[in-house]
Amino acid sequence: MVSRLWVLVKRELFQLVSFKALLIAQIIQPAAWLMLYSVGMTDLVQPFLYCGVPVRYIDFVLPGLVALQGFSQLAYTLSRVADEKRHGMFQALLTSGVDQAQYVLAKASSAVLIASLQCLGIVGVFFLAMDSESTALKLTPHVFILTVMGAILWSSLGTALGTALCSAEKSSVVAALVGLPVMFSSSVFYDLEGAHAVLKSLSAANPLTFYVGALRKSMLFGGINPREYLILGLLTACSFLVACWVVGATDLVTKEK
């Protein structure tokens, strides 16, 4: 089990290293977000109260951007899995002794690596650019634990969706249909405290809301409530199990074939 998993992880790493341009783009992208969007918005938005504490917009949005990188693994994994299914590699792997859990975990490992590098990139750029006096944010181990959990959560959902798709052409459509509503109904970019009731209800059922909230509290206040870890742990476990079930239950080839 473990040796097969390691082989699959190595395969994912080989692939990742082969697409150097993609890898570099994935790391540069969050830093670009940070510089262009958050720095620009910080000059426009006055400090506001978050959980009773005044925060600057850049301190508020940075944990959201870190969470967004974990969330982006959904679209990345979805597209990779749909592509593997279309070209027969999904079938080749699952008829080579690879079981569902190994397949899902291998995809998650690649997502964890990318999300960790993105997290390091964004946090590194931020702390290099800011002196520690001018920011309320703290770098704690929770940030990395949550990044790993988030990458597993979202990549597993991406694997489930990518496997369930009957056509690889639909992967970008599904990624957009899922991605944008989930992103904007969470608190990545804004505090939902004073938001419309409908948006609040949507946000309450949105896993990204919990994920962003946990990351934000860990970075702003240095720790998070164990209950939030529990909720995120359950969400991650559920998403992993759903992905395993979908991989085992769906056809190995798409209808395109």
Binding site: F14, Q15, Q91
Partner: peptide, 12 residues
């Protein structure tokens, strides 16, 4: 299985 498609890891 040797499928009709070129089911290989192109990047490797």
């Amino acid at each position: 299985i040797v499928s009709q498609d070129f089911a290989v890891d192109w990047a490797l």
